[in-house]
């Protein structure tokens, strides 16, 4: 996990092992900055990931995600 204090711009991150690939976060992201990985995690799901730019830190993906620990969003 990224260190909270070191960030200057908003970002989101997905814990690929906890993600179940449901894609709900992708649908709610106003900036369309989340995508699904080609890789499989150890539970055989294709996890979501942050494409790396333009996240506003709105947190909507966090609330849409059913998994308590899969998404973390930081808005400095």
């Amino acid at each position: 996990m990224t260190d909270n204090t070191a960030v200057a711009v908003p970002f989101m991150e997905v814990n690929p092992e906890l993600c179940k690939g449901c894609q709900l976060c992708i649908g709610v992201c106003p900036k369309s900055v989340i995508a699904i990985s080609q890789k499989l995690n150890s539970a055989s799901y294709h996890p979501a990931y942050y494409t790396g730019q333009d996240c506003t830190g709105c947190g909507l993906c966090f609330y849409a995600c059913p998994e308590p620990g899969a998404i973390r969003v930081i808005k400095p």
């Binding site: 814990n15 092992e17 539970a43 059913p66």
Partner: peptide, 17 residues
């Protein structure tokens, strides 16, 4: 089971929310 930080719910289940 092994996945001790993930819930037992199916993908997209509303219980998690």
């Amino acid at each position: 089971g092994p996945a001790k930080e993930a819930t037992h719910y199916c993908p997209g289940c509303g219980h998690g929310n």
